Amino acid sequence: MGFIKAAKADKMSDHARRAAAEGRSIFIAQFRGAVSHSPVLSRPIADIAEMIEAVEREGWHLDQFTSVPWKDNMTITGLFRRAVPQVAMTSAQQQMATPPAMPQQPSGAVGAATWGVPPQQ
């Protein structure tokens, strides 16, 4: 990888690593690359694949993106996601977060008691 490509990828990696260290679950990045004006030419956009790979190496996953032409460049905005570990809750927090158990209603099978009424003998 050339010096400029490596520098761009390293900078994007630094931003992604910092967002992860801050505990973020979403990282939005903007990438810009030169576009072709030929209607038949398909080709990679310079440096963008390398920058996206650098972000993904930091544990992010490209979830969505959009692209917008800007002068002679293409601006791509990518939304990256990562799982954020849940902080352990205290027992008091767990009790508040857990709703009280509700009694089970009978299934309606033969011989099952009617809800709230004891079975007849």
Rank of each mutant, 00 (worst) to 15 (best):
E53T: 04
H37E: 06
A21F: 02
Q104H: 08
D63P: 01
A88C: 02
T114P: 08
W115V: 12
D72K: 07
R82G: 05
G78C: 11
M89Q: 14
V35A: 02
A112T: 14
E22T: 04
G23N: 04
F65A: 08
R57D: 12
P39M: 01
A20H: 00
Q105P: 03
D47L: 01
F27C: 06
S36V: 03
A83C: 03
E56H: 07
N73R: 03
A88D: 12
L79R: 14
A49S: 04
M89I: 01
G59N: 00
V87F: 00
A88R: 12
T77F: 05
A29D: 05
E50V: 03
Q94C: 08
P100I: 13
T75A: 00
S25A: 15
A20N: 04
T98P: 07
W115F: 15
M74F: 01
A92Y: 07
V35N: 05
M89P: 02
H37R: 01
Q30D: 11
A113T: 11
G59K: 06
T90C: 12
G111C: 09
P103T: 08
G111L: 09
M96L: 15
V55C: 12
G108I: 15
N73A: 07
A34T: 12
F31W: 05
P85E: 06
M74T: 08
V40R: 09
P39C: 06
M51C: 15
A113Q: 15
D72P: 02
A20I: 01
Q120P: 06
A97Q: 13
H61L: 07
Q64Y: 07
S38L: 03
A21W: 02
P118S: 13
V87M: 11
A34M: 12
G116V: 08
Q95C: 05
A101M: 04
T75W: 05
T90M: 13
R81P: 01
K71R: 09
P119M: 12
P99F: 09
V40H: 09
L79E: 09
E58R: 10
I52T: 12
V68H: 11
A109P: 01
I45E: 01
F65N: 02
F31K: 05
P118L: 12
A54K: 03
M102Q: 15
Q105W: 08
F31D: 04
T90W: 13
G78I: 10
S91A: 12
L62E: 11
A97R: 13
D63N: 07
M51A: 10
A113R: 15
H37L: 01
T114M: 15
S42G: 05
P106G: 15
A54L: 00
T77P: 01
R18C: 00
R32M: 08
E22R: 14
H37M: 06
A34D: 12
I26R: 11
D47Q: 02
A112I: 05
F65P: 03
P99R: 13
A101K: 07
P119L: 14
F27E: 00
R57L: 10
S91Q: 11
G59P: 02
P85N: 00
E53V: 00
A83G: 09
E56Q: 15
I76G: 03
